[in-house]
Design a protein around this nucleic acid. Structure first.
Lengths: 120, 120
DNA sequence: TGAATAGTTGAACACACATTCATATAAGCA
DNA sequence: TGCTTATATGAATGTGTGTTCAACTATTCA
C-alpha cells in the first residue's frame, strides 16, 4: 500500500502519516476520479457550455445552434459529438434535420452550483 | 440583435426563428458562461480532482499531497496555485509548512452530481 | 551566519484539443 | 436520376496546458 522511500517522487520529512493514511482510505477508486475529470473537461469549454445552456430552454437543430452562437455547422457538430459521447445530449432525426436535446438531469444542478460559486 | 445574412457563419434555411429568439433571451450574459467554463476547466484535470477530494477529508500540506498522489512538490504546487486562483482552496502557513484546505461549499455538491451522472 | 528544507515560480517540452477546411453521407425534391 | 441542403467527419493547424527541471524565496535550527 505504502511506497518505499526510493519509489517516492516526493522527498520531504514533514509528512503527516496519520492524515495521509486516513485520506487515502477515503479516496474513491482512481478510475472514478478520472471519469469525473473527464466529465468536467466536457463542461470546460465555453462553446459547449453555451450549447448546453441553450438546450436547457429548447430542443434545437444544428442549424439553430450554429445560428444562435454564430458559428459554423462543422464546429457545432464536432462539439455535439463530444456532448453525445459524454451522454449529455440525445438526438432525434426528422428528415434531413437532426434535433438535439439534453439527456441528463444532473447538469442543471451542477451549473447552478457553479454559478453560485462564481457569483459569490 | 440579429445578424444580417452576410454576417452569418451559418448558411442554412431551416432556422426555427421563434425558438432561437426565445433561447437567446434566456441565455445568461456571455461573460457568465465564459466564467462557468473556466471554473469547470479547473475541475477537468484528474490531479486537481484528486487534490480536491483529498482536501474534503482533511487539511494537508504540500508534502502530504505530493506523497499521497506520488507526485513532485512542483507539480502539486503548480496545481494548488490554479485551485487558489479559482478561489477553491485557501492556505495557512505554519513555519515552513503551508497547509491547504477547501474554500468553497459548492464543490462537494457539484462532485456528487457529477458522480451521479457517471454512475447511472 | 550558514546549512537544510518546504514551498514557489518561470521556461521548456510534449501532448491535447477547438476550429477550419474539404469532403462525405443522407434525405428531400425536381 | 441528379441537384440541393442538413449534418457528419477526417486531417491540418494553432493555441492552451500539465509536468519537469532548475533556480529561487522563506523559515528553522545549529
Amino acid at each position: 500500500m505504502y511506497l518505499k522511500r526510493e519509489e517516492m517522487k516526493c522527498d520531504c520529512n514533514v509528512i503527516h502519516e496519520e492524515v495521509v493514511s486516513r485520506v487515502r482510505q477515503q479516496m474513491p477508486q482512481e478510475e472514478k476520479l478520472y471519469d469525473l475529470a473527464e466529465l468536467f473537461k466536457v463542461f470546460g469549454d465555453s462553446t459547449r457550455i453555451k450549447i448546453i445552456w441553450a438546450l436547457f430552454e429548447a430542443e434545437m437543430c444544428v442549424c439553430d445552434i450554429a445560428y444562435l452562437l454564430n458559428m459554423t455547422h462543422s464546429a457545432i457538430s464536432h462539439q455535439l459529438r463530444v456532448l453525445k459521447q459524454a451522454r449529455l445530449v440525445k438526438r432525434r432525426k426528422e428528415g434531413k434535420v437532426v434535433f438535439y436535446s439534453l439527456d441528463d438531469k444532473h447538469i442543471e444542478n451542477i451549473f447552478a452550483q457553479g454559478l453560485d460559486h462564481i457569483n459569490e
